[in-house]
Design a protein around this nucleic acid. Structure first.
Length: 731
DNA sequence: CTAGGGTTAG
């Protein structure tokens, strides 16, 4: 932390490393605390084709250009656009001026387009302003230029200007042809105004494929994929044939809706229409299968592709990365993460350079795997390639360091970002909260508001959980009211879970029940679980049994919920209830809990499983663990048999002869890493209280920081204390 | 000459 620079965030907040907090200040000027490597915007002519270079030097170095006509410049400008070469456009522009072709409207319009596509809107604007005449295409080029360069407000003002001028001449009877309507539809869509986009679409009298495609993607881009699908059907019924671009849009809509049934029909349609080997179409289909969980199907498509692009690789990596958080069990989640990293290596081997999409996904994988070392390597690569300056990559990095248990580096990554979105702020607030640093989380939240960023419901989940951890009841309720009244955000279950968790932590279980009673939301599985865990630890058995009955009526989905119930009834000696829960588990086909742990050391992942020979620890590890247990006993550790995770198929809990997987993983880590290294373990299910107590003591005994990410949350053990405040929803 | 597409972060 000491190495952090003091910097100004935005133009209003100062980060003070010594106090680890941000202080609002409106007087300080914005300072950048690190120089992002400049993105390569322009390329030298070296990369151009030989023909182009010859043609260019011919015309610019005074060759005989008498034969040249205005359209001769078009392929040259096109080549500059393809190479993103502003200087190329500039030299051609200069030559056009010299030869007097600047009177040709057609050519000057293309020049506006060329400057716009190369990302230099100021130059495009200058050319436009100097024209003595303009037509619809010229105006549309300029407007679209602003849209492409993420300056929608300029695009709108260009459009208004155009309307004014047109209206003046033809009294509002302007030509509202498809090209204007299409551009408007996309413009409104990019301004996040779906209603206006659809309005613009509907005004088009003769809608063409592009109009329909623009409208369908507008729906998808603005969170209404279902409407996009409807429009696609409507388009077909009106006899308009989709092309490859329409198909990609609609496939992407299927993907976000997880509508594999419709998607596979569209898959057939693409083949029927002859787009079966179009690259973007195939990418979308592959990604659709991947996101729907059909990995082998996706792999078949991938293997059958003749040409693949960076997007193809990115889609594969992103698909596997996402699977790490949606997979049914910890093991398959873990394997997906490993597979994603393998695909990343293969991609690099094939000679392709990763881009911001690749880096964001791969960083997500590292956070799921708690693979700090790999994460650090990727971090280095993002610096080298300049992609770290991208907000999404930067946010993914913050998240990676957080989930790997390094709040200091997460903070540093956050401070060094030059742009922050709501998601960046929310990530950092949540990170502080997860690490039990409630004050910092709340301070950052205030700074975010001070800078003028509007929080959303996820931000408030972070804020409320920070309050909950610190037992700040008044503050929590105040923020809850602020969310409802000031920001008009309707509370969701997660917000209530934070508040109930807070009461339970403070031992105020009755208030927790009160809160549920007067709430508008029907409590879910998660809420009842919090209450049951609280009742158990405070010995309020009657309330616990009551909550359990409510919970059972909901037919819970999560296996861990059933084990919580089993353990509660088991420790109370209520055998009838134990068998009742077991029966329900069979009826509902609840997965059994499988206790896996993983530890990643120097790029290799080691796996441990509870109670099996195959993953049995070496004698050395077993011996070391026994020693640790003995030493822990001297510090007051008592094996708590009541709290053992009940193993599937046995009426009584397994004895402690077989230690839980995280004990093995931690012991292995301690043996195989140097003194200063933090131990980082992932676990497939929640930690039990016995292991939690034990690891706390081990962190003291060994003077090591031990980080265990279980299925519910992060536990960071330092000097006998855990960041979860001993209330980690422990089974 | 202008308008539409596939992959990324909480």
């Amino acid at each position: 932390m000491a190495s952090l620079p003091s910097v100004v965030i935005g133009n209003a907040v100062k980060f003070d490393p010594e106090f680890r907090k941000l202080t609002p200040t409106s007087t300080l000027q914005f300072e950048k605390c690190y120089s992002s490597s400049t993105k390569e915007l322009d390329k030298s002519f070296e990369s151009f084709s030989l023909e182009f270079r010859e043609a260019l030097s011919f015309i610019t170095q005074g060759g005989n250009t008498d034969e040249l006509e205005s359209s001769s410049y078009v392929p040259l400008l096109q080549e500059c656009i393809n190479n993103n070469s502003v200087s190329g456009v500039e030299s051609i522009h200069a030559h056009i001026t010299k030869t007097g072709f600047s009177q040709e409207l057609f050519l000057m319009t293309f020049l506006v387009n060329a400057y716009a596509k190369c990302g230099t809107m100021d130059r495009a604007r200058r050319v436009f302003d100097n024209l003595s005449q303009r037509n619809v295409v010229t105006w549309t080029s300029l407007m679209s230029g602003y849209v492409h360069n993420s300056q929608p407000e300029f695009a709108i003002s260009v459009f208004k200007e155009m309307l004014e001028i047109h209206g003046y001449i033809v009294k509002y009877d302007i030509e509202y042809d498809a090209s204007i309507g299409n551009a408007l539809c996309s413009l409104y869509s990019k301004c996040r105004n779906l209603g206006m986009a659809i309005k613009a679409f509907k005004r088009i009298e003769e809608k063409n494929v592009i109009s329909w495609t623009a409208a369908i993607s507008a729906c998808g881009d603005n969170g209404n994929s279902a409407m996009g699908l409807d429009m696609f059907v409507q388009m077909l019924s009106e006899g308009v044939n989709p092309n490859e671009i329409t198909l990609t849009s609609v496939l992407s809509a299927c993907c976000t809706m997880q509508a594999l049934d419709v998607g596979s029909q569209i898959h057939s349609l693409t083949i029927k229409l002859g787009y079966g080997s179009d690259l973007p179409v195939t990418n979308s289909i592959m990604y659709l299968y991947l996101k729907s969980g059909y990995i082998s199907e996706a792999k078949k498509i991938f293997d059958g592709m003749n040409t693949i692009s960076l997007v193809t690789w990115n889609a594969m990596i992103a698909g596997h990365a996402e699977m790490t958080s949606v997979a049914e069990d910890g093991l398959s989640a873990h394997l997906c993460g490993i597979e994603a990293l393998k695909i990343f290596q293969r991609m690099k081997k094939s000679g392709l350079k990763p881009d911001l999409y690749t880096f964001s996904s791969v960083l997500t994988v590292c956070s799921s795997l708690v693979a700090l070392e790999q994460g650090e390597q990727i971090h280095a690569q993002t610096i080298k390639t300049g992609f770290l300056s991208d907000v999404v990559v930067g946010t993914a990095l913050v998240n990676m360091y957080n989930k790997c248990g390094s709040i200091d580096r997460a903070t540093k990554a956050f401070v060094e970002m030059s742009i922050r979105t709501l998601i960046s702020w929310t990530s950092m607030i949540t990170a502080f909260a997860q690490h039990g640093l409630s004050q910092q989380a709340l301070q950052l939240f205030e700074d975010m508001r001070f800078v003028g960023v509007r929080p959303n419901k996820i931000t408030f989940v972070g804020v409320l959980s920070a309050c909950s951890q610190a037992g700040m009841v008044d503050e929590a309720l105040a923020y809850y009211e602020m969310m409802k009244n000031e920001y008009k955000i309707n509370p969701v279950m997660d917000h209530h879970a934070c508040l109930i968790d807070m009461f339970v932590r403070l031992g105020r279980i009755d208030e927790a029940f009160e809160f549920i009673k007067k709430s508008d939301l029907t409590p879910n599985e998660f809420i009842w679980s919090i209450l049951i865990a609280g009742c158990r630890s405070q010995g309020k058995l009657e309330l616990g049994f009551y909550a359990a009955e409510q919970l059972l009526q909901l037919k819970p989905k999560d296996s861990e919920t059933y084990f919580l119930l089993l353990n509660m009834y088991f420790s109370a000696g209520r055998w009838k209830d134990v068998s009742r829960v077991r029966k329900m588990m069979r009826d509902e086909k609840v997965d059994k809990l499988t206790d896996w742990s993983w530890i990643s050391i120097r790029d290799k992942v080691y796996t441990f499983k509870f109670g099996t020979k195959k993953h049995h620890p070496s004698d050395e590890v077993a011996k070391f663990l026994e020693d640790l247990v003995d030493r822990a006993r001297t510090l007051g550790y008592n094996v708590d048999t009541n709290l053992e995770v009940v193993d599937e198929g046995k009426e009584e809990p397994t004895a402690l002869a077989a230690p839980h997987s995280e004990k093995l993983a931690v012991a292995f880590g301690l043996l195989n890493t140097s003194k200063a290294t933090h131990i980082r373990v992932i676990k497939s299910i929640s930690m039990c209280r016995d292991c939690h107590n034990f690891i706390k003591i081990v962190s003291t005994l060994t003077s090591r920081t031990i980080i265990i990410r279980d299925s519910k949350r992060l536990h960071k053990f330092v000097n006998g204390k855990c960041s979860c405040g001993d209330f980690g929803g422990l089974i």
